[in-house]
């Protein structure tokens, strides 16, 4: 019996011959080669696309430019603030909604209305009220990223099987321990989904606000380089924005692997 106990589900995908990072690198190389080939075949593209060497050069230039690093800091700051406020406020609001169905029913219309306003349409309002400040940027981020958090976490709480909680009750676990050992881990998968959705929303709003309202950050730099006709640099900053998203996603994945490894086997 002990043999069958230790039989853990084996990984799918025996075709995987290379380790993951190597696969990523190979694929990246292919894309880069295809890009260079396209530019060689149709030189007309060079009017608005940089060559690979130009792009590499632009990366070298911005890497030593303190203005670029302060833009990275500004965007990172706004993203961190906006994301954490959205997660905390959204979860608390979801908790409030889940107390009783009537609370949910009375807020439902308001939530649906607010979350369907295209977030970028709020930029003029933000500018009008607060000017091009960090506070305005974070407010706009929260105003749009908070909704997916509210809905995800709310459904996570409501759909948590009551039998888990009943089990805790039958063993007299008490309220704080039930929340810590039963409710929180039970809602954690929805919380992780909420975090992913909110991250995408946050990046969009941060860069969008910087680009359109002129608050400090990478979005502002993109617009700035475009107007200054420093096209390779513009592309370099756009790529950095993408990498920022990838980095945040990698962090989330790391957290999920540490905290949510049970999901893989729970089926």
């Amino acid at each position: 019996m002990s043999a069958s106990v230790t039989t853990v589900r084996r990984r799918r995908g025996r075709w995987r011959v290379l380790p993951m990072p190597a696969l990523h690198l190979v694929f990246f190389g292919i894309v880069l080669a295809a890009y260079a080939a396209a530019l060689a075949l149709d030189p007309g593209l060079l009017r608005f696309l940089p060559t690979v060497p130009q792009l590499v050069g632009a990366f070298g230039e911005i890497a030593v430019d303190p203005e670029f690093w302060s833009a990275v800091g500004a965007t990172g700051n706004a993203v961190a603030l906006g994301l954490s406020i959205s997660m905390v406020a959204g979860s608390l609001f979801a908790l409030l909604l889940s107390i009783h169905p009537s609370i949910y029913a009375s807020f439902r219309f308001l939530v649906d209305f607010l979350r369907t306003i295209p977030p970028l349409a709020l930029i003029p309002v933000g500018l009008l009220l607060m000017g091009p400040t960090l506070r305005m940027e974070v407010t706009l981020i929260v105003a749009s990223a908070v909704w997916p958090v509210v809905l995800q976490v709310y459904y996570g709480i409501v759909h948590l099987d009551h039998r888990f909680i009943e089990t805790a009750r039958s063993f007299r676990l008490g309220m704080p321990r039930t929340v810590w050992f039963v409710v929180a881990p039970g809602v954690a998968p929805s919380f992780a989904t909420a975090l992913r959705l909110a991250t995408a929303m946050t990046l969009l709003l941060a860069v969008g606000t910087e680009l359109l309202a002129g608050t400090d950050g990478l979005g502002f730099l993109v617009g700035w380089y475009q107007q200054a006709h420093q096209i390779p640099r513009m592309y370099a900053v756009i790529i950095v924005v993408g990498l920022l998203g990838v980095a945040i996603n990698a962090l989330i994945k790391l957290g999920e692997r540490r905290l949510l490894s049970w999901i893989e086997v729970a089926r």
């Binding site: 039998r163 089990t167 063993f171 676990l173 008490g174 049970w262």
Partner: peptide
């Protein structure tokens, strides 16, 4: 009094390892 339910998949916590599931009712006592 201890209760054993029919549906073990909704009575054991899927996020706790076996030992922690057994430990759960002993907590805070």
């Amino acid at each position: 009094l201890a209760l054993v339910a029919q549906d073990y998949s909704r009575s054991l916590m899927p996020w706790l390892r076996v030992a922690d599931n057994v430990r759960l009712p002993l907590r805070g006592k």
